[in-house]
Simulated assay, not measured.
Amino acid sequence: MFKRAAVLVASCGALLSGCGTDLQTENEEIISNLIEAGFPAHDIMVADDAVYVGLDAHVTLEASQEMLQPGKESLEQYRTTNLVGTSVTKICVNPTSTFNSYTRLSQGLDAAIANYNGLGLRITMARGPTTGCTANITAQTMSGTGGSAGFPSGGRPYGTINIGTGLNTYSVDVNEHVITHELGHAVGFRHSDYYNRAISCGSGGNEGTAGVGAILIPGTPSTATKGGSVMNSCFSSTETGEWTSSDRTALNYLY
């Protein structure tokens, strides 16, 4: 998303040099798995000792291994190979105290949760702490004006979304948009314009199709357009934070 490149400042030097041995070995395996799954090497980066694809999606070792399992497909509006399993019915999003101290981030989180709950999906979201949670996501802050998250693993949503504190100077709608977007990654969505980031970002190429190609979700457009999806790679300062019709179709199809 817009201005997210700051997430990718590598803390271990060029890729893996200087990291701890165990972490280096794990990250090397993740990168190897991603390349085998079809992600181009130029779209894989290491920041803060973690491996990212598409500028904002953290990939764990387990998630990278699942991408190589036989029969897995890469789809979303587009989605990843991994989705949230049926045992997960209520996802609680738990903001840290620091997150709550930023008024527009906090308001944006409430609006993002309402976006998901307004669709009548098989999974609901709730702002935590609360009861009845079958999965949890921590909402925490990072520097800058973007965000990051990761993909589901083992049938559970990714456990953390990171939202830039610089977004507090933007409208609540923009905060709603970014948080909705990162929660989308956490439940398995890739960027709608993954195949050409220039559509929403003005520059950038193909993030890769994860081995077997990106399979279009029935009923959604075959091509992305600027402003056409909450899940586009980059956002503008005029976002409404609301789902587009194709976003709603994709979510209803999957969940």
Rank of each mutant, 00 (worst) to 15 (best):
E207L: 15
N196D: 14
I215T: 12
N196V: 00
G211Y: 10
S222M: 07
G213Q: 08
H185K: 02
I215C: 01
N232M: 15
A210Y: 13
A198P: 01
G228M: 10
G205T: 07
V187N: 02
Y194E: 11
Y194I: 11
I215W: 15
S200N: 05
C234P: 10
P218F: 09
A210M: 14
G208E: 08
A210N: 14
Y194P: 00
T209A: 15
T223K: 10
F189L: 15
S222K: 14
R190A: 11
S200P: 06
G184F: 11
G228P: 07
N196S: 14
E207A: 14
C234T: 08
G204F: 13
A198K: 10
Y195T: 11
S203Y: 14
H181W: 00
C234L: 09
S222D: 13
I215K: 15
S203H: 08
A186Y: 05
G213E: 05
G205P: 03
F189G: 03
T209P: 00
G188R: 07
S200I: 01
G202L: 08
G213Y: 10
N206K: 03
H185M: 06
I199Q: 04
T209I: 08
S222F: 12
D193L: 08
G202P: 05
H191S: 02
R197V: 00
Y195F: 12
T209N: 14
G211D: 06
R190P: 00
H191Y: 05
N196H: 08
